[in-house]
Amino acid sequence: MSKVFKRIYTYNFLVPAAIIYTVIFIIPTLMSFFFSMTRWTLTDWTFIGLQNFIQFFQEPSLSIGFKNTIIYATVTCLLKVVGGMLLGVFLTGKIRTKSYLRSMVFFPTLLSTIAVGVVFSTMMHPTTGLINTTLAQFGIEGPDWLGNTNIALLSVASVDVWKGVGFATIIYIAGILSIPEEYYEALQIDGGNSWNKFWSIIVPLSRPATNSVIILAFIGGLRSFDLIWAMTRGGPGFATDVIASIIYKQYQGGFYGLATAGNVILFIFVTALVFPLSRYLNRKEVDL
């Protein structure tokens, strides 16, 4: 009887978290699935089955949105992984100002995404922006960063990386510092150099940090909206339209059921990509 009581007593501590999770996540998720099959307003709804999903897949710019979403997520994820690892290695080295530099690298993560988008939109203006004005001082004609359909998406992605690489760096710093010193001492005895230290110890043994950065950065890229909307609103044309921006435009047009169906599709799309990726990465982890 005492064991049963202890088990019930232990589970009681989970009840508050379970209630909060149910109210904030489970119930809204189930409601989203339901309202995605309705034509609804704030005061009324009509059940229409799968019509919203059929109409959403007929959206003219949807194929561009899917392609841009994949490109944006892949580019930002790769750059955050590479940049975060290199900065993590540098900021765990023997440098005097590493505490200050860590703060500076992490600082952009704390800034408002909308504010960052507005500032960089101004800086990337083709004629009066700070970037092209600076390039002109060296005789270089800068491109129209956000107006050129070929580079607009990559321009926004670069800002996303600048803002988010600090978070990836912090994860890598934690992962690198958790590697036991014995590995470094063994490498030193064997006559290994800095490259051997990086490639043979840091890269494989910081794989859990790498996996975390990949998953978080990839999910963030697939769901990205606020920075893209603040900088380009999906333009020029559909050059930077992603799935989330298409959904937002439908909300703006008053097609709430259609937009809700789009959110459900985005949820399924992200889950379908991230779940197998997560399982694959977890199988590759190296135990210390």
Rank of each mutant, 00 (worst) to 15 (best):
Q51W: 10
F56I: 07
S61H: 08
S61D: 14
L62W: 10
F66P: 09
I70C: 03
A73D: 03
T74K: 05
T76Y: 03
C77E: 00
L78K: 00
K80L: 13
K80E: 14
V81T: 05
L86Y: 11
L87D: 10
L87T: 07
G88W: 02
V89T: 14
V89L: 14
I95E: 05
R96Y: 14
K98G: 04
Y100P: 01
L101Q: 04
R102C: 07
R102A: 09
F106V: 08
P108R: 11
L110K: 06
T113H: 10
V119K: 02
M123R: 05
H125M: 12
T127W: 05
T128I: 14
N132S: 01
A136K: 09
F138H: 07
G139R: 11
I140C: 04
E141P: 06
W145H: 10
L146M: 06
G147L: 05
N148R: 02
T149H: 06
T149V: 11
N150F: 13
A152H: 00
A152R: 00
L153G: 09
V156F: 08
S158I: 05
S158G: 06
V159T: 03
V159C: 03
V161F: 08
V165P: 03
F167S: 12
A168V: 05
A168C: 06
I170R: 00
I171T: 02
A174H: 03
I176C: 08
I176P: 13
L177K: 08
L177M: 15
S178F: 15
